[in-house]
Computed example of a mutant assay.
Amino acid sequence: MKMLYGAIALVLAHSVQAAPNSEAVIRLQVASIDSTKADTVQHDRTINDDEQHWVDQTEQALIKEMAKNKPLAQRMSNERLRRELLHTIYYEAKRAGLEPSLVISVIRGESNFRKYAISSTGARGFMQVMPFWADIVGTESADLFNVRTNLRLGCAILRSYLDKENGNITRALARYNGSRSSDAYPNYIYAAWVN
Rank of each mutant, 00 (worst) to 15 (best):
N21Q: 14
L72D: 06
M1I: 13
R80C: 07
W193N: 01
I89H: 14
Y161V: 06
N48G: 09
V147C: 11
N112G: 04
V55Y: 12
D39R: 07
E79Q: 09
K37F: 07
F113G: 09
T170K: 07
A93C: 00
G6I: 02
L151F: 15
S181N: 14
L153E: 03
N177M: 15
P71A: 00
A142E: 06
D44I: 12
H14C: 10
A31C: 15
K37N: 10
M76S: 13
N21H: 09
K64A: 10
T40L: 07
S111D: 05
E59D: 02
N177L: 05
K70R: 08
Q74E: 06
R108Q: 14
H43F: 14
V137W: 01
A7D: 03
G178A: 15
L153R: 07
A24T: 15
D143A: 12
C155F: 15
I157R: 04
Q42V: 10
S15W: 04
D39Q: 10
T40Y: 10
T121D: 03
D50M: 09
I33A: 11
M3P: 08
N48C: 05
G122A: 09
A134T: 05
I169F: 03
R171Y: 00
D50S: 10
I157P: 06
Q52T: 10
K70L: 03
V103W: 02
S160T: 11
E140I: 09
L173H: 12
V11N: 04
S77D: 01
L28W: 15
Y185Q: 10
A67W: 00
R83S: 01
R108L: 11
V103L: 07
W133Q: 05
R95P: 00
V11I: 02
P71F: 00
T88P: 13
V137P: 02
R124S: 03
R82H: 15
D50I: 14
A93R: 02
E92G: 15
V11L: 03
N48F: 08
N150Q: 12
P131H: 12
I47H: 11
A31T: 11
I157G: 09
L144V: 13
A24N: 13
D44Y: 13
Y188N: 02
D183Y: 04
R83Y: 01
L85Q: 10
H14Q: 11
I26L: 12
D34M: 05
Q52A: 14
M3Q: 13
I169N: 03
D44R: 14
A13C: 02
A184S: 07
M66H: 00
E23D: 09
L62Y: 07
D135G: 11
M66G: 00
K115N: 10
L162A: 04
L173V: 15
F126S: 01
G138Q: 09
N168W: 05
V103S: 01
M127D: 06
K64N: 11
I107Y: 11
N69S: 05
R148L: 02
A117K: 12
L62A: 06
L85F: 13
F113S: 02
L62P: 03
S32G: 15
S119V: 05
E65N: 06
